[in-house]
Amino acid sequence: MSWRRLVSMGLSYAALLLLAFLFVSPILLMLTGSMKADARVLVEAGSFRAFLPLDVDLQNYRDVFARVDFGRYLFNSLYITGMVVLAGLVVNSLAGYAFARLAWRGRRVLFGLVLAILILPLEAIAVPLFYQVTLFGWRDTYLVQIVPFIANAFSIYLFYTFFLGLPRELEEAARLDGAGVLRTFIAIIVPNSKPVFATVAILSFLSQWGVFLWPLMVTSGEAVRPLPLAIATFYTLPPLQWGDIFAFGVMMVLPILLVFLFFQRWFIRGVVATGIKG
């Protein structure tokens, strides 16, 4: 290897290590802080002790459960996210299939409308939707946090493009055997489309786990509130104890972090899929 190459490699590693430290330090701060006495979190935030888990004390974690009903929030988040993801997979894959492979009147026009809806972020409809669900009497329910988010234009679009690329012979063989459309879909299409199901599931899990704006608007009681809202409230709850707040944070990010670390390949593929749209 030439000197020039060695120097360039050395510089790359130095840059990567520095950047990696900057990216990870807030996470280390949280993890370390969650395992030491509350009073020391703020005092030591400015020293190297902020990043090194020198002691492992789970008292903060016990405090979280003593101070608030963490289990309740965790259940709410898991339930809401799980329902949106599962129902979304069913509803949006069927729609994607109908647009990609079935012949029916109005298909083109309606698909054009779905594509138009793609550019509408939730924020653009949050206020009228808030008014609408208030009229329905849906505020402070699980329903209001699940039902509006099941049908998703982007998921339909992802399913649509994937199904378009499947060979037609797959279905033709099943049809010849006398299988109906639904049966063909379940028995032939779904098993051959695992990548797109994984991508859609991960993307909707990722966006749903962090929801904040919508539950802030439509829930007031603690009963149905998810974790992101709960930590914002927990932070304002006196006395201000940073160790407890960080313990709450670690527990709230753990489910999605584990899913990310185990299914990293699919995660990255899902995110890259959002880039194909352009």
Partner: peptide, 14 residues
């Protein structure tokens, strides 16, 4: 990539 999976509410508090 890790910070991307962190909910914004948690990021803000940290």
């Amino acid at each position: 990539f890790m910070p991307v999976v962190f909910p914004l509410a948690l990021v803000s508090v940290v």
